[in-house]
Design a protein around this nucleic acid. Structure first.
Lengths: 125, 125
DNA sequence: TGGGGTACGCACCTGCGGGTAAGTACCAGT
DNA sequence: ACTGGTACTTACCCGCAGGTGCGTACCCCA
C-alpha cells in the first residue's frame, strides 16, 4: 500500500517517464544495473551509498511492477536474489543517457563535486 | 526559503539533471516554453491545467536560479512578464526528448490515456 | 556459541512538496 | 461602481516520500 496509485493519465510522454523514474534512487538503480548487468540485493545496497534497505526494496518492487527490472529468486539458503534490467529498463536507460550527459556538463559548469566511494571511478560520466 | 538547499554533491550526471527537473511541473514548463518560445505568466498557467499559482511561480523562480529560464519584466501597468528558455534550458529540453519518446511509447503500451485540453493536440509526442 | 551475512517485513516518525485561500496595487471595460 | 485581468505574496495545512530501527529464518565461519 502506498506504493503505486500512479499510472494516472499523463499530459505527455515526459511525465509518463518521469512518473516511472520518480523516486530518490530509481535512476541510480537503473544506472547501477546497467553498468553491472546483474546485481544481488546486497551488491546494490553497497553500490548506492546512503540508501536504506526499505527504500531499495520498495523501489525495486515498483520498478518490477513497471516492467523495468527482472527479479530472479534462487530458492536456496542463504537466500539469493538477482536483479537485472528488462528490455524496457535498458531502453529507458538509453533514453536517460543524454540527460546524464547534460547533467555531467552542468556539474562541470557549476562545479558541483561528484561523490564517489568506489575506487572504480574514472570510467567517466 | 525552502526553495533551494539543493546542488548537493551528486553521484552522477543523471541525478544532477534530475535535481533540476524535480518538481511536479518543471518538465511541463520546459515543454510549454519550448513549444511556444515565449510565454507570459497567465499563459503558462492556462497551459498547465491544474497548476497552482504558487507552484508555478516557485518553480519558475527555481528554474531561473538554475539558469534554465529567462525572466523579462516590462515595467508597465498592468504588469507584464515574459518567460523564455535560456540556452541551458533549450539543451536540457533536447536531452529530455528521448525520455519523452520513451514515455510516449510506454503510454501506448500500457494504454494510459493522455489528458489533452488544447485543441492543439495531434502534433505528436 | 556468538557474530556476521543474506533478503527482506513492519511499525513509527518527520520533513517538505505541494495545495488552498486570501490579500495587493493598478487598470480596462461595461 | 463593479467585475475581471495582470503578476504575484503570504499564511496555513496536509499527505506521503523517505528515514530509522527492530525482527525474522537460516546458514557459515571462527
Amino acid at each position: 500500500m502506498g506504493a503505486s496509485a500512479r499510472r494516472g493519465p499523463y499530459f505527455c510522454g515526459i511525465d509518463a517517464a518521469m512518473d516511472v523514474v520518480a523516486g530518490k534512487w530509481k535512476s541510480l538503480i537503473l544506472w547501477e544495473l546497467h553498468q553491472h548487468g546483474t546485481r544481488r540485493f546486497a551488491e546494490l545496497r553497497r553500490g548506492l551509498p546512503g540508501v536504506s534497505e526499505k527504500m531499495l526494496i520498495q523501489h525495486l518492487r515498483e520498478m518490477e511492477e513497471d516492467g523495468l527490472v527482472h527479479r530472479e529468486v534462487y530458492h536456496q539458503v542463504p537466500p539469493k536474489v538477482e536483479y537485472s534490467l528488462t528490455e524496457d529498463g535498458v531502453s529507458l536507460n538509453a533514453a536517460l543517457a543524454p540527460l546524464g550527459e547534460w547533467g555531467t556538463e552542468r556539474m562541470r559548469r557549476i562545479g558541483a563535486g561528484r561523490v564517489l566511494v568506489d575506487g572504480a571511478a574514472a570510467t567517466g560520466r
